[in-house]
Write a protein that binds this DNA or RNA. Structure first.
Lengths: 333, 333
DNA sequence: AGCGGTAACGTGAGCGCTCACGGGAGCGGT
DNA sequence: ACCGCTCCCGTGAGCGCTCACGTTACCGCT
């Protein structure tokens, strides 16, 4: 009711100063626990601040003591354990640098991603994470900010990206299956993007390297249910398949579940190998064999590269901007 | 090497203006995609900005257009799926308000929590999450900021907290076990805090309400391994126990695994009921019966209350600041 | 009384940006 | 030639705070 056109004016340090009968500087001293202030004065200021509901503007403070750095972390779906692990790693790496991390979960929707990017520039000093928008649009929206992409190629000079080198790991996985006697090996790729994934490509390469025909492939949503459905589909079309490699562990866990419901015992009747190396994989039954990649490294590298770009020091070379993957044998294959 | 005592001075909008031979305002127009600027001028400014590596100060911008709000979300361990779910819910609620969320993972260490709180005041407008420090210390460190605690009592007027009302759900769980014929029911409480947890208290109350003696209790670390160890311990001391209720789902999953390794089939030889209602619980074998609480509600309520405190509108009443819990029957009991 | 010293406070400047203006150049119409 | 319009662009002010200084009051000491 008392609100004027421009809304209720913010309570500033000067209001507190006036109310306590002191100067701005004294208020500042009281609030920041500095010396050169009397105890009674300090208390009086503190009381006045409380009474007025004064809250310092972090912008004004940040403007003058420009110390804190914060990065925006863009994640498609925090509830997906893989992204959780990457996020946790990034948080860790950021904490080591005393950076602040603003997390955005786009829910895998492009509009949300755009909205996030639009608003991000005014809030962070760098952007790190999973982006799906075309590069020119990212460029427009983040103009000036350093951007570090994870698991995505980039053409533009302005961006950096962290590569996942999974080829060897996938090779090892297929080799392992072949050595165990499997010949009909299928794959559960993910369904979202139009083109087959790079992991699918690695799978094909590994198959032919082992002298096998291209395996049967089914597309799966990135969820346990998606994995379940995809395995049923694959098995329906190719009943002779005795082993599957999946796009990621989530899908693999769905496959595990589907196999159980179909009465196929893992790994006796069906071997399953996932990709990612989630902790979660060790909790399911049987524990999931997987091509594990260094998720901590992913997050840490991304932050490290952001730091280099931010300080204009020598950025990491392309060779360094990659994390490897290795076969982690558990019990599902 | 060229860094002077005060470091390399930041590139400001004026530097760009000078370099492009225009005024500040024109630079501002170019960078913010505003009208009233010629195309060629705009390009020239953009080029100059790029060449100088200009990056606008978010503080200066925020200072003048004070629109964006951001909250600090303090989480003990993002990799714990429970906190992941709460965090995701909070992110969601914040997104709906167009707020930014700065996430801090304290790794369950008090010093980290203190460090976080120390630095948080200058970065956010409100603090939400799990804090373990004593209230007076929180008060000192967050002076002025609204604080919303989750799952923790508070005495001070300044704080708010979101309560978990699990009593009914636990009651239902125990009743369910009793109706299934169980009489010797144990509990796996958590080990970290000194006092027995409130969930333990609910367990005791439910037991006596069902006319049973106080059950055997073992302490478990908040991890799958902790749950495993605790169940072994409990069973060793009380071999006649046929059902266990656990502090949370993580511990329950450990118990499930221990039972499997001990050759006890669940639920035939041992019934297990967890607490939290994690999605994860539906992935294990057998799917975990659990007292599910509304994690989304937790995160959403916390953000909502922070919003009320921030806008000085009527805060939520104590009754509203709670989420319930209900028994979710799956297959482990 | 005079003087240095310290504790307690105030004053100006400035951080880097945007907003509300003000103003000149160019162009067409009468 | 003059007005009025549109299109560009620049100027001053101010956002709310902290830092580096000044300034005052009061103490003890010679």
């Amino acid at each position: 009711m008392a609100s004027s056109g421009s809304g209720p004016r913010r309570v500033t340090i000067d209001d507190v100063a006036r109310s306590a009968g002191v100067s701005r500087q004294t208020v500042s001293r009281a609030l920041n626990d500095k010396d050169e202030i009397g105890v009674s004065t300090k208390q009086r200021v503190l009381d006045a601040a409380l009474a007025l509901g004064y809250r310092p503007s972090r912008f004004a403070r940040g403007l003058v003591r420009q110390d804190t750095i914060s990065v925006g972390l863009v994640i498609p779906d925090l509830l997906n354990p893989f992204f959780t692990e990457v996020a946790a790693a990034a948080l860790d790496a950021a904490r080591a640098r005393e950076w602040h991390v603003v997390v955005y979960d786009t829910g895998d929707r492009v509009e949300e991603e755009r909205g996030t990017l639009e608003v991000i520039a005014s809030q962070v000093d760098a952007v790190v994470g999973y982006l799906s928008l075309p590069e020119d649009e990212i460029d427009k929206l983040t103009r000036g900010l350093p951007v570090v992409l994870i698991d995505r190629e980039h053409r533009t000079e302005r961006f950096s990206s962290i590569r996942i080198e999974g080829e060897e790991g996938v090779h090892a996985a297929i080799r392992h299956l072949v050595e165990a006697g499997h010949r009909r090996i299928g794959m559960l790729d993910h369904a979202e993007r139009s083109k087959p994934s790079i992991r699918h490509h690695w799978f094909d390469a590994a198959m032919s390297a082992c002298g096998l025909d291209a395996g049967a492939v089914s597309r799966a949503d990135q969820s346990v249910e998606g994995g379940e459905a995809a395995l049923r589909e694959l098995l329906a079309a190719h009943p002779d398949v005795t082993a599957v490699f999946t796009f990621n562990d989530i899908i693999a866990i769905g496959a595990l579940r589907a196999a159980r419901r179909l009465g196929r015992e893992v790994p006796r009747d069906l071997a399953v190998i996932g990709f990612d190396g989630l902790r979660l994989g060790s909790l399911v039954e049987p524990p999931l064999t997987t091509v594990a990649l260094d998720t901590r490294g992913l997050g840490a590298l991304a932050v490290e590269q952001a730091a280099r770009l931010l300080t204009r020091s020598e950025p990491l070379s392309s060779d360094e901007l990659a994390v490897g993957a290795e076969l982690r044998l558990r019990e599902s294959a």
